[in-house]
Write a protein that binds this DNA or RNA. Structure first.
Lengths: 189, 189, 189, 189
DNA sequence: ATGTAATCGAGACGGTACGTCACGTCTTGTT
DNA sequence: AACAAGACGTGACGTACCGTCTCGATTACAT
């Protein structure tokens, strides 16, 4: 219904910026639609007009600032995985950065539709990049041919997420390396 | 401050039962403290007197009904793991059962303290049971000696949780079996 | 803080009407802010936005329906006073009408600010009307020149209020007449 | 039902003292049954067992400390009235003392039964003392024989109460004297 | 002197209302 | 038409007291 051609880009940016600021500065509980609107100097209706839920605002704010995922391909699979896994583990370990993950996860749990969007728009590139790298390795014979690459990707990111949510152990480079070791052991020919 | 010796066991049970009923019957958003109190025929203060947050009520309700974890030890590690992983995958795949996981996860994300309690009281027994089974297998030489058993446990449960949260694929017995296959491949001597 | 220009006149009227209805129908103890809001079909916040206490709602409701005070001036001071005093005594004697006086008095006793408003907005017109009538009579030589007219007004209304509050005797026309007799005796030249 | 012979005089005194202390120290709104019990170091039930409402506690606390009313009879009616009216006006003018009047008045307005008790037990002695003094004066020919002494008493105390409740003017000795003047003018033969 | 029954302190309990917060919708000018 | 502003009905929040109730632990009376 809303006419996107008339949309104020200025308000849109103010809202997304306000959302990111509030995510970084305050408790997630304080990050309400009203707070975003107030912080952005925007009417609440302007938010409701363009997004259906708070989670979508957060998602768009995050996708906007996401750096395009480029996975290195040095030829050395283990080194390449180590790099990406170390980076991911570091991100989950950083309280500042993981605040956004917290927020997004809560929203995903309340809205299946959003969960799909987060998966496809935010995470898929990352997951696919790893998968693609694994596919290359498989073609090069570094990985057994019957390995389920989608599952292998989950073997990498699932444990990190699990450990992060449960505070089930330290999120250190050593942990990242151990994880890579075990996953590679699972797929080596 | 409250005097636990004078606590009404009847009210406590009514509250925990009401919480479970609401979790099973309704949307998580409708599962408010007021709704629990009303359903239990109890004053709100009686809830606030004994629990600090809704998540603690849910946790206690769930721990109360948790069946003690017994992991089979048939001598066949793969068969044993298959059984427990299939059961876990089935649980996450069942919308009814996973409603409680949703609720608890949301609460954990809002309260680190609760996250610790959930980990230690609810999940630890399950995780440790698997770990213990792996330890037995390692002593029997079915697993390489340098495997990090804690990490292996995460390799099993992390992907399930990851797939469930992201709706990243079907949660079927076949998936469970594939997961066990890959994990075992990682740890076989 | 609230923007009075955007105020809903419809809600305002519904609230004041509900307040009057509840005063007439129910016990004063049941006349809560929540009950007013429910009866008016209005959010509690809409009451709190525009009034600070229940007493202010009642005051505004009563001033809204107050009939303008017109004191007769037949030339016969005694007859005129008799009329107004009889009416006042009848009002205090009527359980229905005195319910509002009860309510308002309780509120006045809990809030000095409100007491002043009730005095100035609700009672002052009545008191001043009597005082003015007395002033006319004084100019006509029917009242001694050194009479303190403010005090004379209190001599009239004070005893009525006193008797009403203490149930210290009947509130009848005969009482009204006796009161007028004595007060006039006090001020005749 | 309760057996008064077993009643703890110590608790009774503690409750009445606590009530008076709270009346003097705090806002009337903070003077709850729970606050009295806590301050007195007494169980709530001990209050409910012996009094039906908060107002009765206050009443008993006040009657307990009331000084017996003795009205002077110097032979000079005007001087005698001036004394008692000045004292009354001073009491109403003192914020500390009038706090108890406030409390009691609120309770009276919520409970007719209590109103009667306050009238008969607390105020009657004072009112009757004045009335008796007036009766003596009437026998001595200082007051016209057809004066309604009950009404005259109301002419004295009603205006004070009225002025106090409405903050309708200063409560000073000059006011007291003016009041006596006018009342005496009303009853002189 | 010794049960035994009521009072006592303490405070948990089911309720009701409080006053606040944020929701998502709506209305009112402004741009 | 979108916008800032914010009032609106709704409903949950967490708190304060209400008046009732159950708990041992003192009492003080009747056996």
């Amino acid at each position: 219904m809303p006419d996107a051609t008339r949309r104020s880009e200025q308000s849109r940016r103010a809202i997304l910026d306000a959302a990111l600021t509030l995510l970084a500065e305050t408790d997630y509980a304080k990050m309400t639609i009203e707070a975003i609107a107030a912080r952005a100097g925007v009417g609440k209706q302007t938010i409701y007009r363009w997004w259906r839920r708070k989670g979508e605002v957060i998602l768009e704010a995050l996708t906007g600032q996401a750096t395009p995922v480029v996975l290195p391909d040095s030829g050395d699979l283990e080194a390449d995985l180590r790099e990406v896994v170390r980076a991911t583990v570091a991100e989950f370990g950083d309280p500042r950065l993981s605040a956004t993950t917290r927020a997004l996860t809560v929203e995903m749990l309340s809205d299946d539709d959003l969960a799909g969007q987060v998966r496809d728009r935010l995470l898929r590139p990352q997951l696919d990049a790893v998968r693609d790298r694994l596919a290359v390795a498989r073609e090069q014979g570094q990985i057994r041919t019957d390995a389920d690459l989608g599952l292998v990707v989950e073997l990498i990111f699932g444990p990190i997420f699990h450990r992060w949510l449960l505070s089930n152990g330290p999120l250190t480079p050593a942990y990242a390396d151990g994880l890579v070791d075990h996953v590679l052991a699972a797929v080596r020919p």
